[in-house]
Design a protein around this nucleic acid. Structure first.
Lengths: 110, 110
DNA sequence: TTGGAATATTACCGTTTGGTTGTGGAGTAG
DNA sequence: CTACTCCACAACCAAACGGTAATATTCCAA
């Protein structure tokens, strides 16, 4: 196997990235950002994801900190976008695997 | 964007998966499993990853629970293997992104 | 059967985390 | 200036988490 997680610094960085995706609220935020054609304001994110304002702010700050989401203030409001293609690829990979697994375990019952 | 994280059940499942990868100790375990040609026993994992026996046991149980690692007892010892290609693909994707990002930020300094 | 090796489990502790509430600051319109 | 909107931040709390130490449990060998 290749030298993927070579250094401890890489381990730390990667674990922070995965950890940021390992929360239901943050995944809802990413889903909202992925499914919206236009960039969403923080209020829009909170509404679509079903989170309080302060909660969305904290989670968005986390996603920005680890580099999964970009932040662009514009006048009074702040817009957020997912970092592509990384975020979409990760979701596609894991969701695909979970779907396949569920399908297989369902067919195993027949 | 496609209907990736469609249901709340999918959100929960996916968040558990990412959360399991979002820890430095568990990433070290996955690295040990990926880089070893032969399947590792729990003791082997603990030694390679630099963890205590009980700690490795807990983290391995977590990885097995979310379906990132398979467990196969054999006589007295228990062997573990990463679920491929999922684990390797995830590591490759994120490590590649992190490397690219670091490279870009380095070149931006010149 | 006795002993030892490999693993699982329990209890415990300090730290971190997700969520809420409340407040403050920056920007904008009237 | 005033009022309003949007956002960030601090304090706080309950719950979850990572790690350790000690204790089963299971299996094999002598």
């Amino acid at each position: 196997m290749k030298p993927f997680l070579a250094s401890d610094a890489m381990i730390d960085e990667v674990s922070c990235l995965f950890d940021a995706m390992g929360d239901a609220s943050r995944l809802k935020i990413l889903r909202a950002l992925l499914e919206s054609k236009e960039p969403l304001s923080q209020g829009g994110v909170a509404e679509v994801a079903g989170l309080s304002q302060a909660n969305a702010s904290k989670h968005l700050a986390c996603l920005v900190r680890v580099g999964l989401v970009t932040r662009s203030p514009e006048g009074n409001t702040v817009f957020f976008r997912p970092v592509l293609p990384l975020v979409a690829d990760l979701c596609e990979l894991v969701c695909g695997h979970v779907s396949e697994r569920a399908k297989a375990s369902y067919q195993a019952l027949t």
